[in-house]
Design a protein around this nucleic acid. Structure first.
Length: 551
RNA sequence: GGCCCGUUGGUGAAGUGGUUGAACACACAUGCCUUUCACGCAUGCAUUCAUGGGUUCAAAUCCCGUACGGGUCACCA
Protein backbone atom coordinates (compact mmCIF):
# COMPACT_ATOMS: atom_id res chain seq x y z
CA UNK A 1 0.00 0.00 0.00
CA UNK A 2 1.44 3.35 -0.96
CA UNK A 3 1.59 6.37 1.27
CA UNK A 4 -0.77 8.10 -1.04
CA UNK A 5 -3.35 5.38 -0.64
CA UNK A 6 -2.99 5.56 3.12
CA UNK A 7 -3.40 9.31 3.03
CA UNK A 8 -6.55 8.90 1.01
CA UNK A 9 -7.87 6.36 3.42
CA UNK A 10 -7.38 8.74 6.33
CA UNK A 11 -8.62 11.86 4.55
CA UNK A 12 -10.99 10.63 1.85
CA UNK A 13 -12.80 13.94 1.52
CA UNK A 14 -9.84 16.25 1.31
CA UNK A 15 -9.53 17.22 -2.34
CA UNK A 16 -7.56 20.41 -2.19
CA UNK A 17 -3.81 20.09 -2.28
CA UNK A 18 -1.35 22.30 -0.56
CA UNK A 19 -0.64 23.90 -3.93
CA UNK A 20 -4.30 24.87 -4.10
CA UNK A 21 -3.97 26.65 -0.79
CA UNK A 22 -0.79 28.36 -1.87
CA UNK A 23 -2.82 29.79 -4.71
CA UNK A 24 -5.72 30.81 -2.50
CA UNK A 25 -3.41 32.61 -0.08
CA UNK A 26 -0.76 34.22 -2.25
CA UNK A 27 2.11 36.26 -0.92
CA UNK A 28 0.90 39.56 0.46
CA UNK A 29 1.50 42.70 -1.44
CA UNK A 30 3.56 44.77 0.88
CA UNK A 31 6.32 47.21 0.73
CA UNK A 32 9.89 46.32 1.46
CA UNK A 33 10.45 45.61 5.11
CA UNK A 34 6.81 45.65 6.12
CA UNK A 35 6.16 43.21 8.93
CA UNK A 36 3.16 40.98 9.24
CA UNK A 37 2.38 40.12 12.83
CA UNK A 38 -0.39 38.47 14.66
CA UNK A 39 -1.90 38.28 18.08
CA UNK A 40 -2.98 34.70 18.55
CA UNK A 41 -4.43 34.05 21.97
CA UNK A 42 -6.36 31.01 22.96
CA UNK A 43 -9.83 31.98 24.07
CA UNK A 44 -9.74 31.08 27.72
CA UNK A 45 -11.88 33.97 28.85
CA UNK A 46 -9.14 36.07 30.39
CA UNK A 47 -6.77 38.50 28.87
CA UNK A 48 -3.52 38.41 30.76
CA UNK A 49 -1.31 41.46 31.03
CA UNK A 50 1.40 39.32 29.42
CA UNK A 51 -0.88 38.78 26.43
CA UNK A 52 -1.26 42.51 26.17
CA UNK A 53 2.49 42.91 26.19
CA UNK A 54 2.65 40.54 23.22
CA UNK A 55 -0.15 42.24 21.37
CA UNK A 56 1.56 45.56 21.89
CA UNK A 57 4.83 44.17 20.56
CA UNK A 58 3.03 42.80 17.50
CA UNK A 59 1.27 46.06 16.96
CA UNK A 60 4.45 48.09 17.19
CA UNK A 61 6.32 45.81 14.84
CA UNK A 62 3.57 46.00 12.25
CA UNK A 63 2.76 49.68 12.54
CA UNK A 64 6.37 50.79 12.64
CA UNK A 65 6.91 49.17 9.27
CA UNK A 66 3.66 49.83 7.47
CA UNK A 67 2.70 46.19 7.83
CA UNK A 68 -0.33 44.28 9.00
CA UNK A 69 -1.39 43.25 12.47
CA UNK A 70 -4.05 40.58 12.61
CA UNK A 71 -5.92 38.63 15.23
CA UNK A 72 -6.16 34.87 15.07
CA UNK A 73 -8.28 32.86 17.39
CA UNK A 74 -6.42 29.75 18.54
CA UNK A 75 -9.31 27.65 19.67
CA UNK A 76 -7.96 24.19 19.02
CA UNK A 77 -8.31 23.23 22.64
CA UNK A 78 -12.01 22.70 22.79
CA UNK A 79 -11.85 21.67 26.43
CA UNK A 80 -10.61 25.03 27.60
CA UNK A 81 -12.56 27.20 25.30
CA UNK A 82 -14.81 29.76 26.87
CA UNK A 83 -17.79 31.37 25.27
CA UNK A 84 -17.50 35.12 24.67
CA UNK A 85 -13.74 35.00 25.16
CA UNK A 86 -13.17 36.52 21.76
CA UNK A 87 -15.47 39.34 22.69
CA UNK A 88 -13.29 40.08 25.70
CA UNK A 89 -10.18 40.00 23.59
CA UNK A 90 -11.65 42.43 21.12
CA UNK A 91 -12.84 44.64 23.96
CA UNK A 92 -9.36 44.80 25.39
CA UNK A 93 -7.75 45.51 22.04
CA UNK A 94 -10.26 48.25 21.38
CA UNK A 95 -9.76 49.70 24.84
CA UNK A 96 -6.04 49.91 24.25
CA UNK A 97 -6.35 51.08 20.70
CA UNK A 98 -4.54 48.00 19.40
CA UNK A 99 -7.16 47.35 16.79
CA UNK A 100 -6.24 44.54 14.41
CA UNK A 101 -6.32 45.09 10.66
CA UNK A 102 -7.65 41.62 10.02
CA UNK A 103 -9.88 39.61 12.28
CA UNK A 104 -12.95 37.48 12.52
CA UNK A 105 -15.50 38.42 15.04
CA UNK A 106 -19.19 37.72 15.47
CA UNK A 107 -19.52 36.24 12.01
CA UNK A 108 -17.72 39.08 10.35
CA UNK A 109 -14.48 38.34 8.53
CA UNK A 110 -12.14 41.19 7.72
CA UNK A 111 -9.10 40.29 5.60
CA UNK A 112 -8.24 37.93 2.76
CA UNK A 113 -6.38 35.30 4.71
CA UNK A 114 -9.16 33.88 6.82
CA UNK A 115 -10.79 32.09 8.38
CA UNK A 116 -9.01 33.59 11.38
CA UNK A 117 -10.46 30.99 13.69
CA UNK A 118 -8.52 27.77 13.83
CA UNK A 119 -11.46 25.49 14.37
CA UNK A 120 -12.78 26.67 11.01
CA UNK A 121 -9.54 25.78 9.27
CA UNK A 122 -9.71 22.05 9.84
CA UNK A 123 -9.85 21.19 6.14
CA UNK A 124 -6.77 23.23 5.51
CA UNK A 125 -4.80 21.47 8.20
CA UNK A 126 -6.00 18.13 6.94
CA UNK A 127 -4.75 18.89 3.44
CA UNK A 128 -1.33 19.71 4.85
CA UNK A 129 -1.27 16.60 7.01
CA UNK A 130 -2.36 14.53 4.06
CA UNK A 131 0.60 15.87 2.18
CA UNK A 132 2.97 14.96 4.98
CA UNK A 133 1.65 11.42 4.99
CA UNK A 134 2.14 11.21 1.24
CA UNK A 135 5.77 12.24 1.52
CA UNK A 136 6.31 9.91 4.46
CA UNK A 137 6.75 12.62 7.07
CA UNK A 138 3.69 11.79 9.15
CA UNK A 139 1.92 8.65 10.26
CA UNK A 140 -1.03 7.52 12.32
CA UNK A 141 -0.29 6.45 15.87
CA UNK A 142 -2.59 4.13 17.76
CA UNK A 143 -1.00 4.33 21.18
CA UNK A 144 -3.49 5.11 23.90
CA UNK A 145 -2.77 7.72 26.51
CA UNK A 146 -2.38 4.89 29.04
CA UNK A 147 0.29 3.27 26.89
CA UNK A 148 2.00 6.61 26.62
CA UNK A 149 1.89 7.23 30.36
CA UNK A 150 3.41 3.86 31.02
CA UNK A 151 6.07 4.50 28.48
CA UNK A 152 6.93 7.79 30.08
CA UNK A 153 7.31 6.14 33.45
CA UNK A 154 9.67 3.57 32.05
CA UNK A 155 11.66 6.29 30.39
CA UNK A 156 11.92 8.15 33.66
CA UNK A 157 13.02 5.01 35.45
CA UNK A 158 15.72 4.46 32.87
CA UNK A 159 16.61 8.13 32.97
CA UNK A 160 16.29 8.35 29.25
CA UNK A 161 14.83 11.27 27.39
CA UNK A 162 11.04 11.21 27.55
CA UNK A 163 9.10 11.28 24.31
CA UNK A 164 8.07 9.39 21.24
CA UNK A 165 11.21 8.65 19.30
CA UNK A 166 13.57 5.89 18.19
CA UNK A 167 12.71 2.50 19.58
CA UNK A 168 9.95 4.02 21.72
CA UNK A 169 8.05 5.13 18.64
CA UNK A 170 6.17 1.90 18.20
CA UNK A 171 3.74 3.05 15.55
CA UNK A 172 6.39 4.66 13.44
CA UNK A 173 7.46 1.41 11.83
CA UNK A 174 4.07 -0.12 11.23
CA UNK A 175 3.47 -1.08 7.63
CA UNK A 176 0.85 0.83 5.73
CA UNK A 177 -1.17 -2.38 5.50
CA UNK A 178 -1.22 -2.68 9.29
CA UNK A 179 -2.16 0.96 9.61
CA UNK A 180 -4.97 0.64 7.09
CA UNK A 181 -6.35 -2.39 8.82
CA UNK A 182 -6.40 -0.80 12.25
CA UNK A 183 -8.01 2.30 10.85
CA UNK A 184 -10.64 0.23 9.14
CA UNK A 185 -11.26 -1.54 12.42
CA UNK A 186 -12.14 1.82 13.88
CA UNK A 187 -9.18 2.16 16.23
CA UNK A 188 -8.72 5.76 17.33
CA UNK A 189 -5.50 7.35 16.30
CA UNK A 190 -3.56 10.59 16.24
CA UNK A 191 -1.23 11.75 13.51
CA UNK A 192 2.40 12.16 14.42
CA UNK A 193 5.09 14.03 12.63
CA UNK A 194 7.93 11.78 11.53
CA UNK A 195 11.04 13.47 12.78
CA UNK A 196 14.36 13.01 10.99
CA UNK A 197 16.28 14.99 13.57
CA UNK A 198 19.31 13.87 15.49
CA UNK A 199 19.82 15.33 18.95
CA UNK A 200 23.55 14.98 18.57
CA UNK A 201 23.37 17.69 15.99
CA UNK A 202 22.61 21.26 16.91
CA UNK A 203 20.24 23.78 15.48
CA UNK A 204 21.08 27.40 15.77
CA UNK A 205 18.57 30.12 15.63
CA UNK A 206 18.52 33.77 16.30
CA UNK A 207 16.07 35.58 18.48
CA UNK A 208 16.50 39.32 18.78
CA UNK A 209 15.63 39.24 22.47
CA UNK A 210 17.98 36.49 23.57
CA UNK A 211 20.50 36.42 20.76
CA UNK A 212 21.77 33.21 19.22
CA UNK A 213 20.51 30.08 20.88
CA UNK A 214 21.72 26.56 20.28
CA UNK A 215 19.48 23.58 20.76
CA UNK A 216 19.82 19.89 20.05
CA UNK A 217 17.75 18.96 17.01
CA UNK A 218 14.28 17.73 17.66
CA UNK A 219 13.83 13.98 17.35
CA UNK A 220 10.42 13.66 18.90
CA UNK A 221 7.55 12.45 16.76
CA UNK A 222 5.13 15.02 18.07
CA UNK A 223 1.42 14.72 17.72
CA UNK A 224 0.22 17.10 15.04
CA UNK A 225 -3.41 16.07 14.91
CA UNK A 226 -5.48 15.01 17.86
CA UNK A 227 -7.93 12.14 17.86
CA UNK A 228 -11.55 12.88 18.54
CA UNK A 229 -12.03 16.37 17.21
CA UNK A 230 -9.24 15.89 14.64
CA UNK A 231 -7.94 19.37 15.28
CA UNK A 232 -4.25 20.11 14.95
CA UNK A 233 -2.01 20.76 17.93
CA UNK A 234 -0.56 24.22 18.42
CA UNK A 235 2.73 23.25 16.78
CA UNK A 236 1.13 22.24 13.56
CA UNK A 237 -1.44 25.00 13.38
CA UNK A 238 1.32 27.52 13.98
CA UNK A 239 3.30 26.29 10.99
CA UNK A 240 0.39 26.09 8.59
CA UNK A 241 -1.32 29.30 9.64
CA UNK A 242 1.69 31.50 9.88
CA UNK A 243 2.82 30.24 6.53
CA UNK A 244 -0.49 30.73 4.74
CA UNK A 245 -1.15 34.04 6.43
CA UNK A 246 2.39 35.09 5.59
CA UNK A 247 3.35 36.13 9.08
CA UNK A 248 6.85 37.53 9.06
CA UNK A 249 7.36 37.91 12.82
CA UNK A 250 6.01 35.66 15.51
CA UNK A 251 5.87 37.22 18.96
CA UNK A 252 5.23 34.81 21.80
CA UNK A 253 6.27 34.12 25.35
CA UNK A 254 9.58 32.61 26.30
CA UNK A 255 7.86 29.41 27.28
CA UNK A 256 7.90 28.54 23.57
CA UNK A 257 11.65 28.60 23.26
CA UNK A 258 12.10 24.86 23.81
CA UNK A 259 9.74 24.00 20.95
CA UNK A 260 11.59 26.03 18.38
CA UNK A 261 13.61 23.03 17.09
CA UNK A 262 10.36 21.21 16.41
CA UNK A 263 8.94 24.18 14.60
CA UNK A 264 12.06 24.53 12.54
CA UNK A 265 11.84 20.91 11.48
CA UNK A 266 8.20 21.30 10.62
CA UNK A 267 8.83 24.32 8.44
CA UNK A 268 11.67 22.49 6.75
CA UNK A 269 9.54 19.43 6.04
CA UNK A 270 7.26 21.60 3.95
CA UNK A 271 10.06 23.66 2.53
CA UNK A 272 8.49 26.79 3.97
CA UNK A 273 10.42 29.81 5.00
CA UNK A 274 10.15 30.21 8.71
CA UNK A 275 9.15 33.49 10.29
CA UNK A 276 11.37 35.35 12.68
CA UNK A 277 10.68 34.65 16.31
CA UNK A 278 10.62 37.12 19.12
CA UNK A 279 10.31 35.43 22.47
CA UNK A 280 9.21 37.91 25.07
CA UNK A 281 10.21 37.50 28.66
CA UNK A 282 7.51 36.69 31.15
CA UNK A 283 5.98 39.13 33.57
CA UNK A 284 6.72 38.09 37.11
CA UNK A 285 5.36 38.82 40.52
CA UNK A 286 7.26 39.19 43.76
CA UNK A 287 5.81 36.72 46.20
CA UNK A 288 7.69 36.83 49.47
CA UNK A 289 11.25 35.92 48.61
CA UNK A 290 10.38 34.34 45.33
CA UNK A 291 9.63 35.71 41.93
CA UNK A 292 7.08 33.73 40.07
CA UNK A 293 5.14 34.01 36.91
CA UNK A 294 2.31 36.42 37.45
CA UNK A 295 -0.80 34.33 37.75
CA UNK A 296 -4.35 35.13 36.88
CA UNK A 297 -5.63 33.04 39.73
CA UNK A 298 -3.65 34.68 42.53
CA UNK A 299 -2.95 38.15 41.24
CA UNK A 300 -5.82 40.38 40.22
CA UNK A 301 -3.38 42.71 38.50
CA UNK A 302 -2.47 39.92 36.11
CA UNK A 303 -5.67 40.48 34.23
CA UNK A 304 -6.35 43.35 31.91
CA UNK A 305 -9.79 43.58 33.42
CA UNK A 306 -8.24 44.93 36.63
CA UNK A 307 -6.93 48.01 34.87
CA UNK A 308 -10.13 48.57 33.01
CA UNK A 309 -12.19 48.31 36.17
CA UNK A 310 -9.98 50.76 38.01
CA UNK A 311 -10.15 53.12 35.09
CA UNK A 312 -6.54 53.46 34.10
CA UNK A 313 -6.40 55.43 30.88
CA UNK A 314 -5.33 53.26 28.00
CA UNK A 315 -2.39 55.52 27.41
CA UNK A 316 -1.11 54.86 30.89
CA UNK A 317 -1.23 51.11 30.42
CA UNK A 318 0.47 51.39 27.05
CA UNK A 319 3.14 53.74 28.36
CA UNK A 320 3.95 51.53 31.31
CA UNK A 321 4.24 48.48 29.09
CA UNK A 322 6.41 50.40 26.67
CA UNK A 323 8.88 51.10 29.46
CA UNK A 324 9.04 47.40 30.14
CA UNK A 325 9.63 46.55 26.51
CA UNK A 326 12.28 49.16 25.85
CA UNK A 327 13.62 50.96 28.86
CA UNK A 328 15.01 53.78 26.72
CA UNK A 329 11.39 54.60 25.99
CA UNK A 330 11.10 56.93 28.97
CA UNK A 331 14.02 58.97 27.86
CA UNK A 332 12.49 59.28 24.45
CA UNK A 333 9.15 60.20 25.97
CA UNK A 334 10.72 63.03 27.94
CA UNK A 335 12.14 64.43 24.76
CA UNK A 336 8.91 63.98 22.85
CA UNK A 337 6.17 64.59 25.37
CA UNK A 338 3.40 64.88 22.83
CA UNK A 339 4.40 62.31 20.24
CA UNK A 340 2.42 59.14 19.71
CA UNK A 341 4.14 56.08 21.06
CA UNK A 342 4.09 54.71 17.55
CA UNK A 343 6.70 57.23 16.56
CA UNK A 344 9.11 55.61 18.96
CA UNK A 345 11.52 53.27 17.23
CA UNK A 346 10.87 50.01 18.95
CA UNK A 347 13.87 47.73 19.11
CA UNK A 348 13.18 44.07 19.93
CA UNK A 349 16.81 43.48 20.79
CA UNK A 350 16.40 45.83 23.74
CA UNK A 351 13.66 43.80 25.32
CA UNK A 352 14.87 42.44 28.62
CA UNK A 353 15.56 38.74 28.88
CA UNK A 354 14.90 38.59 32.57
CA UNK A 355 11.34 38.37 33.68
CA UNK A 356 10.24 41.80 34.83
CA UNK A 357 8.08 42.66 37.79
CA UNK A 358 5.19 44.72 36.60
CA UNK A 359 5.49 47.82 38.75
CA UNK A 360 2.13 49.17 39.82
CA UNK A 361 3.72 52.23 41.46
CA UNK A 362 5.23 53.14 38.17
CA UNK A 363 1.90 52.72 36.45
CA UNK A 364 0.31 55.03 39.01
CA UNK A 365 2.94 57.64 38.41
CA UNK A 366 2.58 57.49 34.64
CA UNK A 367 -1.16 57.54 34.92
CA UNK A 368 -1.18 60.51 37.32
CA UNK A 369 0.85 62.48 34.85
CA UNK A 370 -1.43 61.61 31.99
CA UNK A 371 -4.60 62.41 33.86
CA UNK A 372 -3.16 65.64 35.21
CA UNK A 373 -2.49 66.81 31.68
CA UNK A 374 -6.06 66.34 30.48
CA UNK A 375 -8.13 69.48 30.16
CA UNK A 376 -11.28 69.79 32.21
CA UNK A 377 -13.64 68.57 29.52
CA UNK A 378 -11.49 65.62 28.61
CA UNK A 379 -11.26 64.37 32.15
CA UNK A 380 -14.96 64.99 32.63
CA UNK A 381 -15.72 62.85 29.58
CA UNK A 382 -13.47 60.11 30.88
CA UNK A 383 -15.13 60.16 34.25
CA UNK A 384 -18.55 60.07 32.66
CA UNK A 385 -17.66 57.08 30.49
CA UNK A 386 -16.09 55.30 33.38
CA UNK A 387 -18.81 55.85 35.98
CA UNK A 388 -21.52 55.03 33.49
CA UNK A 389 -20.23 51.46 33.56
CA UNK A 390 -18.70 51.18 36.99
CA UNK A 391 -20.68 53.46 39.27
CA UNK A 392 -24.12 54.37 37.91
CA UNK A 393 -25.28 56.33 40.94
CA UNK A 394 -22.24 58.57 40.84
CA UNK A 395 -22.74 58.86 37.11
CA UNK A 396 -26.24 60.21 37.73
CA UNK A 397 -24.86 62.76 40.12
CA UNK A 398 -22.07 64.13 38.00
CA UNK A 399 -24.14 64.37 34.87
CA UNK A 400 -26.94 66.06 36.81
CA UNK A 401 -24.49 68.74 37.92
CA UNK A 402 -22.34 68.77 34.82
CA UNK A 403 -20.92 72.30 35.04
CA UNK A 404 -20.40 72.02 38.77
CA UNK A 405 -18.52 68.75 38.27
CA UNK A 406 -16.37 70.15 35.53
CA UNK A 407 -15.56 73.02 37.87
CA UNK A 408 -14.51 70.59 40.58
CA UNK A 409 -12.38 68.60 38.21
CA UNK A 410 -10.76 71.80 37.05
CA UNK A 411 -9.44 72.83 40.45
CA UNK A 412 -5.71 73.43 40.09
CA UNK A 413 -5.81 71.68 36.74
CA UNK A 414 -5.35 74.03 33.84
CA UNK A 415 -2.11 75.51 35.01
CA UNK A 416 1.59 75.05 34.43
CA UNK A 417 2.00 72.39 37.11
CA UNK A 418 -1.33 70.73 37.62
CA UNK A 419 -2.23 68.62 40.61
CA UNK A 420 -1.67 64.89 40.38
CA UNK A 421 -4.44 63.50 42.45
CA UNK A 422 -5.83 60.75 40.29
CA UNK A 423 -3.92 57.62 39.41
CA UNK A 424 -7.04 56.12 37.90
CA UNK A 425 -10.64 57.13 37.43
CA UNK A 426 -11.68 55.13 40.44
CA UNK A 427 -9.77 57.70 42.52
CA UNK A 428 -11.95 60.56 41.36
CA UNK A 429 -14.91 59.83 43.56
CA UNK A 430 -12.66 59.20 46.56
CA UNK A 431 -11.31 62.70 46.13
CA UNK A 432 -14.34 64.79 45.32
CA UNK A 433 -17.38 63.11 46.86
CA UNK A 434 -17.71 65.75 49.57
CA UNK A 435 -18.56 68.37 47.01
CA UNK A 436 -22.00 66.81 46.53
CA UNK A 437 -24.71 67.31 49.14
CA UNK A 438 -26.18 63.98 48.15
CA UNK A 439 -23.02 62.30 49.42
CA UNK A 440 -22.26 64.70 52.26
CA UNK A 441 -24.67 63.03 54.59
CA UNK A 442 -22.79 61.72 57.55
CA UNK A 443 -19.38 63.30 57.31
CA UNK A 444 -16.64 62.16 59.63
CA UNK A 445 -14.92 65.38 60.56
CA UNK A 446 -11.17 65.07 60.50
CA UNK A 447 -10.22 67.84 62.91
CA UNK A 448 -6.57 68.43 63.42
CA UNK A 449 -5.12 70.71 66.09
CA UNK A 450 -8.28 72.55 67.05
CA UNK A 451 -10.88 70.15 68.29
CA UNK A 452 -12.95 72.00 70.85
CA UNK A 453 -16.44 72.70 69.73
CA UNK A 454 -16.61 76.28 71.05
CA UNK A 455 -13.41 77.30 69.38
CA UNK A 456 -14.46 75.73 66.08
CA UNK A 457 -17.78 77.53 66.20
CA UNK A 458 -16.14 80.81 67.19
CA UNK A 459 -13.85 80.59 64.17
CA UNK A 460 -16.53 79.58 61.69
CA UNK A 461 -19.06 82.12 62.90
CA UNK A 462 -16.53 84.92 62.92
CA UNK A 463 -15.57 83.98 59.43
CA UNK A 464 -19.09 84.02 58.06
CA UNK A 465 -20.11 87.16 59.88
CA UNK A 466 -17.10 89.36 59.32
CA UNK A 467 -14.72 87.98 56.75
CA UNK A 468 -16.67 86.13 54.11
CA UNK A 469 -17.70 88.03 51.01
CA UNK A 470 -18.90 86.22 47.92
CA UNK A 471 -16.84 87.03 44.87
CA UNK A 472 -13.57 87.92 46.53
CA UNK A 473 -10.54 87.06 44.47
CA UNK A 474 -8.07 84.60 45.87
CA UNK A 475 -5.65 87.13 47.28
CA UNK A 476 -8.35 89.11 49.01
CA UNK A 477 -9.86 85.94 50.34
CA UNK A 478 -6.65 84.76 51.86
CA UNK A 479 -5.65 88.11 53.28
CA UNK A 480 -8.99 88.14 55.06
CA UNK A 481 -8.36 84.71 56.50
CA UNK A 482 -5.02 85.98 57.75
CA UNK A 483 -6.59 89.06 59.21
CA UNK A 484 -9.15 86.96 60.99
CA UNK A 485 -6.41 84.74 62.36
CA UNK A 486 -4.75 87.80 63.82
CA UNK A 487 -7.99 89.02 65.34
CA UNK A 488 -8.66 85.69 67.00
CA UNK A 489 -5.19 85.43 68.50
CA UNK A 490 -3.54 83.26 65.89
CA UNK A 491 -0.35 83.99 63.99
CA UNK A 492 -1.06 85.57 60.64
CA UNK A 493 1.81 83.87 58.87
CA UNK A 494 3.93 80.84 59.43
CA UNK A 495 7.26 82.60 59.82
CA UNK A 496 6.05 84.68 62.71
CA UNK A 497 4.54 81.65 64.30
CA UNK A 498 7.68 79.58 63.99
CA UNK A 499 9.74 82.31 65.57
CA UNK A 500 7.56 82.51 68.61
CA UNK A 501 4.91 79.84 68.84
CA UNK A 502 4.20 80.59 72.51
CA UNK A 503 2.76 83.95 71.69
CA UNK A 504 -0.18 82.60 69.73
CA UNK A 505 -3.13 80.24 70.09
CA UNK A 506 -2.00 78.72 66.83
CA UNK A 507 -1.48 79.90 63.32
CA UNK A 508 -3.34 80.67 60.16
CA UNK A 509 -2.98 77.07 58.98
CA UNK A 510 -5.01 75.92 61.96
CA UNK A 511 -7.71 78.41 61.08
CA UNK A 512 -7.76 77.25 57.47
CA UNK A 513 -8.00 73.69 58.61
CA UNK A 514 -11.06 74.42 60.71
CA UNK A 515 -12.75 75.97 57.71
CA UNK A 516 -11.63 73.18 55.44
CA UNK A 517 -12.94 70.47 57.73
CA UNK A 518 -16.19 72.28 58.35
CA UNK A 519 -16.99 72.55 54.68
CA UNK A 520 -15.51 69.32 53.35
CA UNK A 521 -15.06 67.19 56.49
CA UNK A 522 -11.57 66.36 55.24
CA UNK A 523 -8.27 67.84 56.37
CA UNK A 524 -6.65 67.36 53.00
CA UNK A 525 -8.20 68.88 49.95
CA UNK A 526 -7.16 70.91 46.95
CA UNK A 527 -7.19 74.66 47.19
CA UNK A 528 -9.80 75.76 49.73
CA UNK A 529 -10.54 79.05 48.01
CA UNK A 530 -11.62 77.31 44.84
CA UNK A 531 -13.64 74.79 46.77
CA UNK A 532 -15.55 77.48 48.62
CA UNK A 533 -16.17 79.32 45.39
CA UNK A 534 -17.78 76.25 43.91
CA UNK A 535 -19.68 75.37 47.05
CA UNK A 536 -21.26 78.82 47.25
CA UNK A 537 -22.66 80.67 50.23
CA UNK A 538 -25.89 78.76 50.54
CA UNK A 539 -24.22 75.40 50.71
CA UNK A 540 -21.63 76.76 53.12
CA UNK A 541 -24.27 77.92 55.55
CA UNK A 542 -26.00 74.59 55.30
CA UNK A 543 -22.79 72.78 56.08
CA UNK A 544 -22.06 74.98 59.06
CA UNK A 545 -25.45 74.14 60.45
CA UNK A 546 -24.83 70.47 59.78
CA UNK A 547 -21.45 70.64 61.49
CA UNK A 548 -22.85 72.31 64.59
CA UNK A 549 -25.44 69.59 64.90
CA UNK A 550 -23.02 66.75 64.41
CA UNK A 551 -20.10 67.58 66.65
C1' G B 1 16.59 14.75 36.27
C1' G B 2 17.70 16.29 30.75
C1' C B 3 17.67 20.60 27.67
C1' C B 4 17.43 25.99 27.28
C1' C B 5 17.64 31.01 29.35
C1' G B 6 19.01 34.34 32.98
C1' U B 7 21.45 36.88 37.72
C1' U B 8 23.58 45.29 37.86
C1' G B 9 20.03 49.31 43.94
C1' G B 10 13.34 48.37 46.89
C1' U B 11 11.37 48.38 41.17
C1' G B 12 12.14 48.91 35.60
C1' A B 13 16.92 49.25 34.03
C1' A B 14 21.48 52.03 31.04
C1' G B 15 25.89 49.63 30.21
C1' U B 16 28.96 44.93 24.86
C1' G B 17 37.10 45.79 27.64
C1' G B 18 39.36 52.12 29.52
C1' U B 19 36.03 60.12 30.47
C1' U B 20 31.30 54.67 35.18
C1' G B 21 33.90 58.15 41.06
C1' A B 22 27.71 52.54 37.63
C1' A B 23 22.92 56.94 33.69
C1' C B 24 17.76 57.78 33.66
C1' A B 25 12.82 56.96 35.66
C1' C B 26 9.70 55.05 39.72
C1' A B 27 9.57 54.19 44.92
C1' C B 28 11.64 55.67 49.60
C1' A B 29 13.99 59.38 53.15
C1' U B 30 15.14 64.37 54.59
C1' G B 31 14.83 69.56 53.82
C1' C B 32 12.80 73.92 51.30
C1' C B 33 8.30 76.15 49.43
C1' U B 34 3.45 76.32 51.53
C1' U B 35 -3.49 77.78 54.50
C1' U B 36 -3.79 71.23 54.45
C1' C B 37 -2.61 67.74 50.88
C1' A B 38 -0.73 67.34 46.23
C1' C B 39 2.57 69.92 42.91
C1' G B 40 7.44 71.97 42.44
C1' C B 41 12.54 72.42 43.99
C1' A B 42 17.02 70.49 46.53
C1' U B 43 19.68 66.58 48.70
C1' G B 44 20.39 61.46 50.00
C1' C B 45 19.82 56.27 48.66
C1' A B 46 24.61 49.95 44.74
C1' U B 47 32.61 51.76 47.56
C1' U B 48 29.90 47.96 43.48
C1' C B 49 27.49 44.79 39.20
C1' A B 50 25.12 36.47 42.39
C1' U B 51 29.79 33.93 43.63
C1' G B 52 34.87 31.65 42.99
C1' G B 53 38.72 31.47 39.59
C1' G B 54 41.08 32.84 34.92
C1' U B 55 42.44 36.13 30.39
C1' U B 56 44.25 41.42 30.17
C1' C B 57 48.26 47.05 31.45
C1' A B 58 42.74 47.46 32.28
C1' A B 59 36.33 43.62 33.28
C1' A B 60 29.80 44.80 35.31
C1' U B 61 31.53 44.04 30.24
C1' C B 62 35.55 38.04 27.55
C1' C B 63 36.31 32.53 29.33
C1' C B 64 35.47 28.39 32.96
C1' G B 65 33.32 26.41 37.44
C1' U B 66 29.63 27.01 41.54
C1' A B 67 25.13 28.85 43.63
C1' C B 68 20.46 30.71 42.90
C1' G B 69 16.09 31.92 39.87
C1' G B 70 12.99 31.05 35.59
C1' G B 71 11.17 28.16 31.34
C1' U B 72 10.25 23.39 29.14
C1' C B 73 9.95 18.15 28.65
C1' A B 74 0.99 16.60 26.96
C1' C B 75 -3.82 14.18 21.98
C1' C B 76 -2.69 22.65 26.58
C1' A B 77 -1.61 26.62 24.25
Amino acid sequence: MTNKELANLIFPNIDKTIEDYEAIYPEREKKEGARITRFAPSPTGFVHIGNVLQALTDYLLAKNSGGVFYLRNEDTDTKREVESAVLKIMEVLEYLGLTPDEYQYQGKVVGNYGPYVQSERKEIYHAFIKYLIEIDRAYPCFCSSETLDEMRKRQEAKKSQPGYYGAWAKCRDLTNEERAERIKNGEPFVIRFKSMGNPNRKVLFHDPVTGVIEFPENNNDMVIMKSGDLLPTYHFAHVVDDHLMHTTHVVRGQEWLPSVPLHIELFNAFGFKQPEYIHNSLLLKQDGDIRRKISKRKDPEALMAYYMEKGYPKKAVIESLMTILNSNYEEWRNEHPDASYLEFEFDPSKVGTTGALYDLDKLDNISKNIISKMDKNTIYDHVVDYTKKMDPSFYELITKYEDYTIGILNIEREQEKPRKDFACLEDVKKNIWYMYDELFIEPTYEWMKITEKEEIIRIVDTYMEKYFTEGDDKETWFSKVKEMAGQLGYAMNMKEYKQNPEAYLGNVADISTVLRVTFTSKNQTPDLYEILNLLGKERMLKRIKQMKEMI
